[in-house]
């Protein structure tokens, strides 16, 4: 078990290194505008040249990357070129926002999907069909389009929830929840659509297992059979889809953050790639990959724990 974790961490580190290198190379491919963006339109050409040299943009790409890598392995992700703060500090304020959205969506969508999926699996027939149609409907429109509609209707026309901005958890619990409501809702619609179908098919598959019949033949209540045995066995594939969902959410949160003006990881990455703030971009990619690696590892560990064959070996 320990060696397994170490191996996964090892390959995770390799992933981070590869990802950061790829992004670094891409960003450096077209970096002439960086100095101009930092200094603005009134700066002279000499100023631009000086800034370019100061940032090390005239050095060979490998050298620049190694310079960054050296700092990164010591925990220093560098300094933003467009901001006085360190990359770690800036991203640290952003990560909780994106995580709040992603985790919130996963929680809400999981709860709803489990209910919906089990109901669909148990009561095949018109209810199942209806839920399938509703699921399809949820997947049909892109999350950012739903978000736009929600902003126009719920926020603008009905004035129910503040449409914009993010209230940190520390500042106000109710504010935090309110600022998350619409973003999570727009994302959860799509997430529930897919996940509920997954729960449904996993549950159907388990319900057809021989041991379910045998358990029933012992006279166990349907609730025991369902909530103890079926759910437990339907969990692994569902968890896998949940983790895929989470990773997709981290990515998809970018559009949502734009619509709701949330200061998350996605929006700072979009801005940074645009202006050429390479330390921020690479830092954001590193953090993204780290989160993905951790989530994958956790899910695999949970799945392993759930499976007695793996747990005891």
């Amino acid at each position: 078990m320990i060696s397994y974790i170490f191996r996964r961490i090892g390959s995770g580190i390799a992933l981070v290194a590869a990802a950061s290198f790829i992004v670094f190379a891409l960003m450096l491919a077209n970096s002439e505008h960086v100095a101009r963006n930092i200094l603005g339109d009134q700066a002279s050409v000499e100023q631009l040249a000086a800034k370019q040299a100061e940032l090390g943009l005239n050095d060979p790409m490998i050298l620049q990357y190694l310079h960054w890598l050296l700092g990164a392995v010591q925990g220093d992700l560098g300094q933003s070129w467009f901001n006085a703060e360190s990359v770690s500090y800036l991203l640290a304020t952003r990560v909780p926002v994106t995580l709040s959205i992603a985790v919130g969506t996963v929680i809400i969508s999981t709860v709803i999907s489990v209910v919906v999926g089990i109901v669909a699996a148990l009561y095949r027939g018109w209810l199942d069909k209806l839920l399938q149609v509703v699921s399809v409907a949820g997947l049909v429109f892109p999350g950012f389009w739903l978000a736009l509609v929600l902003v126009v209707k719920v926020s603008i026309d009905w004035g129910l929830v503040p449409a914009t901005g993010y209230t940190p958890f520390g500042e106000s619990l109710s504010g935090w929840l309110l600022s998350l409501t619409l973003p999570v809702f727009s994302l959860a619609i799509g997430a529930v659509a897919g996940l509920s179908q997954q729960v449904r098919s996993a549950t159907i598959a388990v319900l057809e297992m021989d041991y379910v019949r045998t358990l029933r033949s012992r006279g166990l209540s349907e609730a025991s059979v369902l909530f103890r045995h079926v759910l437990r066995n339907a969990a692994p594939p569902t968890l896998t889809v949940m983790s895929l969902n989470f990773i997709a959410l981290m990515s998809g949160a970018v559009m949502i953050e734009r619509v709701f003006a949330l200061p998350g990881l996605g929006s700072i990455a979009v801005d940074a790639t645009g202006v050429g703030d390479i330390p921020i971009v690479v830092g954001a990619v590193v953090i993204s990959v780290v989160i993905v690696v951790i989530v994958n590892l956790l899910i695999d560990l949970i799945n392993g724990w759930l499976n007695p064959k793996v747990r005891l070996s």
Binding site: A19, I22, V23, M250, A269, T273, G274, G276, V292, N296
Partner: peptide
Amino acid sequence: DWVSNLLIALPNIMILLAVRAAW
């Protein structure tokens, strides 16, 4: 499989953003 894991772990949107910035 290793390469495949790498590609999956890459944040799609950010790569595409970087591609756009580059090319």
